[in-house]
Structures are given as structure tokens and as C-alpha cells.
Amino acid sequence: MVDTPSRILVLGATGKVGGAVLRNLSNDPGLILRATTRSKGKKTALDALADEIVSFDFEDQSTYEASLEGVDRLFLLTGYSVDMLHQSKFLIDRAAAVGVKHVVHLGTHAPNDTAFKHHSWHQLVERYIEWRGLGFTHLRPAMFMVNILDYAKANKDKPGILVHYTADARVAWVDVDDIGLAGAAVLRNPDMHSGKTYYLDSEALSMSEVADILQAETGQDWQFEHRDADELMPRLQAAGREMTYASSGVTFFQAVAAGKAPDIDKTHHALEQLIGRPPTRWTDFAKRNRNEFLY
């Protein structure tokens, strides 16, 4: 008797994390990969990676059920909005109704007693998945290294300056490609990871230490420039970000800078165990992206 391939639905497949998960699952003969996209114009980028491509929009609940039809495993990312709470609840309810067996949820690198709003929302989503009786694995990634690359490329007026909001605090970091490997490993063998919560991180460094690594790798001058996170609000508002979520992010960065964000620098061994090699460190990331950091 031939086993029926399992169908995996990957949300956010055109984004950094969802795309990394999809790439690491691609061409697995035991899986049917279904990728979601909001923009039909982006479908061509997914053709080589996914067996099926569906339209999905968190803002349009009519897209939920068709996207989940026939799905065994779900990779769940949420939007950057307080709406993530009711959107995730509705999606999880639909997943349970159609027989999804396992949900891998991407949360945040925070302790269970976190006081920060957007971190708490992720943990409420985790608890709801568990309450609904679905198989689950919770992934809690640290700060993304790639975000610093994006900031550096966007800061063309002040090349070599890393503007950020964490003062001298050390924070835990992770490479998005490693998250993709970890997510794929769990989705490939969900029973092995059922009921587990994995903190995904590599090392804890301050922004000044990151600047030193970039300087050593590029041979160019790099410096860290701390800013109060209050400066973020008008930029986030101009970008159309939802203000409840945005204000929580500002509060979080201010707490980090003040040394009042528990476990922000805590590292774990889960990532190495999941991906079968030492996780990417900042020196590795800087070397791999050296040309993009050059100015």
C-alpha cells in the first residue's frame, strides 16, 4: 500500500520566513506543498517551489477554508496587528474543522510570563492552538539578523551607521535561513516534535558588537547609533502600521534599552538540534552578505 503524501500549507510563502520554510521543503517526494499569496503577480516566484498556490488573505475570511482544504499540517505566521488574535482564532477553528493534524506556529523569543503586549498575543495564539486539541509545535525566534541588513541598505544618507533602539543591551539573534531549516524539519516529522516549544537563537550580541563584526568583514567603518524608540512611531504610522502593535514594539525596545526585558539575551541549544549543525552566527551572516553591506 502506497502512503498518501501529506499536504502542508505554508502561510507567508512570499515573505522571508515562509519562503525559507518553503525552500527547505521543496522537492520532498513525501509532501504536497501548498503556498499562499495575496498578490497574483507573485505566483510565478512560487511556481518552482510549491505544488499548489492559493490566494489567502488574513483580512478575508472567505479565503481560509479553501486554503485549508485537504491540509494535514499548517505553518502559521501572523500579521503585525492586534487583529492577529481574532484572525488566528478563526483560522485555527477552520483548521480543526477540516482535520488539520498539526500546526507549527511562529511566535516570539519571550518568556512565558512576558509583560509585552505583542509577545503575549503570540502566546495566547499558542494556548488556543493547544486548547483546540491540534498537534502543535511552537517556534520562538530571536531577533532577525536580516532586519539589520535591511536597515543598513535603507540608511543611504548615513552609510556605515547602524541606527537601532537597543542601547548597550545584548540581544539574541537568529538567521532567517536557519528558521526555515528548523520549520521544515518540524513539518517533515511533526510527531517527533509534537507538544514542543523551541527557542530559535544563535548568540547574544549588542549592536556595537554587530557593528564591529561588519567593520572587520567589510574593511569599512561601521558604528552603532542608538536612538530612542519613540522615533519609530511616526515612521511606523507613515508606513501604515497598526498603532496598537506598533506602540507595543516601541515599549519593548525602550525596555530592552533600559535593561528591563527579561531573557532578551538568553540563548538555547534547540536550533542546532533541529538543523543538525551549529546555527549561523553574526560573523557567518556578515561574510555571506558582505557585498550587500558594502557602501
Rank of each mutant, 00 (worst) to 15 (best):
R281I: 03
D60I: 07
Y198F: 12
H105I: 04
V21F: 10
Q223K: 11
S194N: 15
F58T: 04
T137E: 04
A97F: 05
F58I: 01
P190F: 00
P278S: 14
G195A: 13
F285M: 07
R277F: 12
N189P: 00
L187P: 13
K117T: 15
R94H: 12
H86K: 10
T44N: 14
V210P: 01
N147T: 10
P111D: 13
L74F: 13
D57M: 03
N289H: 04
F285W: 08
L46M: 05
I213M: 01
L214T: 06
Q254W: 03
V186K: 14
V125H: 11
S248V: 02
D47S: 15
L46E: 10
I53F: 09
A96R: 15
T283I: 13
R288W: 06
I8K: 08
V103Q: 11
V10Q: 14
F224V: 08
Q220Y: 00
G12V: 01
H138P: 01
I32D: 11
T137A: 02
P262E: 05
A286D: 09
A96N: 12
D168G: 10
H102S: 03
E217A: 02
V176H: 03
D57T: 06
F252V: 00
H164L: 06
A95S: 07
K101Q: 09
D168W: 01
S88G: 08
L294A: 04
R281Y: 01
Y199A: 14
F116Q: 09
H118Q: 11
E292S: 07
W121C: 05
V146Y: 02
L162R: 05
A238M: 03
R23P: 12
T14C: 09
R73Q: 06
S194H: 15
A48D: 15
G107K: 11
N112Y: 06
L274C: 10
A258V: 12
K43F: 02
D230Q: 05
D263L: 11
V186W: 13
T218H: 04
R290C: 02
L236Q: 14
H138C: 04
G180Q: 13
M192N: 15
A255W: 03
I179Y: 01
D57K: 07
L22D: 12
D113H: 03
L25N: 14
E59C: 10
H118W: 03
R241L: 03
N155Q: 05
R227Q: 11
V10S: 12
Y199M: 15
A45F: 01
V176A: 02
G70T: 03
L232C: 05
R38C: 05
I8R: 08
M143W: 02
G195K: 12
G19I: 11
V98A: 02
D221F: 00
T251Q: 14
K117Y: 13
L149S: 07
L149I: 10
N289D: 07
D263C: 10
L77S: 04
V256L: 09
A216C: 04
L11R: 11
I179R: 07
L149D: 08
N27S: 14
G133T: 05
A152E: 12
E69F: 00
W222G: 06
L91T: 00
T197D: 13
Q123E: 14
K42P: 10
T36M: 07
L200H: 02
I148H: 14
G219F: 07
I161T: 13
